[in-house]
């Protein structure tokens, strides 16, 4: 782990990504210590105050401290996106490896399912499903991960197909390893780099999706905060309280950039030593 972090540190993209994400995670984990305000308590005496020393990022329409709300909002946005992308990457890898190794009918059927799933407009399905049921973090995670595993599945399938033709997999077969051993000892370690970097990239896009849903009012319900719902509230008077929109937007953009940079860095670092075919 320490080795991996030093490697990331040496990579330019990875370094920036790691710094950004560590800072954001730090803020979101230690939110109660870092701020003394309550994220949902309204104080109508200090409505829409500009950034000042007492309220670092100003206050919103109900007199709540924006800094506090962004910190607490990050907890919702980050936990949903991190967990949902973990589930979808794991599921996608599973499908991809099975599909790449089995070949023939299973492969065909699974890949057609992937094609069909990719054909759905993801965002509208999300809206539909969430508006039919009631919002809960659990539901959102399930729906988000149900519609995001396909890219990982395609990626890992291609890698598995490539790996399956390499000599060291043949050598492993010749040494009498069974399918499960080959999957866990040879295929998974070799594709883990791609899987991890695609996890980081997917987390970034999950944050955007989650903010989109919250922005439409389908996500976390007021008075609880999420980055998307803060943006939605800022819509009421975008010019009067410009800082609300600006800082919530910056939070989203920085986090997504952070995850993307980290993903790119990991992609370069975790590329296995070149393997060839004979």
């Amino acid at each position: 782990m320490i080795k991996l972090i030093t490697k990331i540190w040496k990579n330019k993209n990875g370094k920036f990504g790691l710094i950004i994400i560590s800072v954001i995670l730090f803020f979101s984990i230690f939110a109660p210590i870092l701020t003394s305000f309550n994220p949902t308590m309204q104080n109508l005496n200090i409505v829409l105050q500009k950034p000042s020393f007492s309220h670092v990022l100003g206050t919103d329409y109900y007199g709540r401290d924006l800094f506090t709300r962004i910190l607490y909002g990050s907890r919702v946005s980050l936990s949903i996106s991190i967990i949902a992308s973990a589930i979808s990457v794991l599921f996608g890898t599973l499908i991809g490896v099975i599909s790449g190794l089995s070949g023939k009918y299973t492969d065909n059927i699974l890949m057609r399912i992937v094609d069909i799933m990719l054909g759905f407009p993801k965002f509208f399905i999300l809206i539909l499903v969430i508006s039919m049921g009631s919002f809960s973090i659990f539901n959102t995670i399930i729906v988000l991960s149900l519609f995001s595993w396909m890219d990982t599945a395609r990626l890992t399938r291609t890698e598995t197909l490539l790996l399956n033709n390499t000599t060291f997999i043949k050598a492993a077969k010749a040494m009498g390893m069974n399918k499960l051993q080959i999957i866990f000892h040879h295929i998974i370690p070799n594709i883990s780099g791609i899987v991890i970097s695609s996890y980081s990239l997917l987390t970034g896009s999950m944050i955007i999706l989650e903010s989109g849903i919250s922005f439409l009012g389908l996500g976390v319900q007021p008075p609880n905060a999420s980055w998307g719902s803060i943006l939605n509230e800022a819509r009421l008077d975008p010019l009067g309280g410009w800082w609300v929109m600006l800082f919530a937007g910056i939070a989203i953009v920085t986090t997504v950039i952070g995850f993307n940079l980290l993903g790119d860095g990991l992609k370069e670092i975790l590329q296995p030593e070149h393997y060839q075919d004979d």
């Binding site: 050598a171 883990s192 393997y275 060839q276």
Partner: peptide, 30 residues
């Protein structure tokens, strides 16, 4: 039979070894 009774040594050693596993764990695997 594979590996236990009949074993195969491949032509190109650099491609017949898994690049991401340490030598030690590759031996323990077999």
């Amino acid at each position: 039979v594979r590996g236990k009774i009949v074993s195969l040594l491949f032509q190109n050693p650099s491609s017949s070894l898994n690049p991401v596993l340490k030598c030690g764990s590759q031996i323990i695997d077999i």
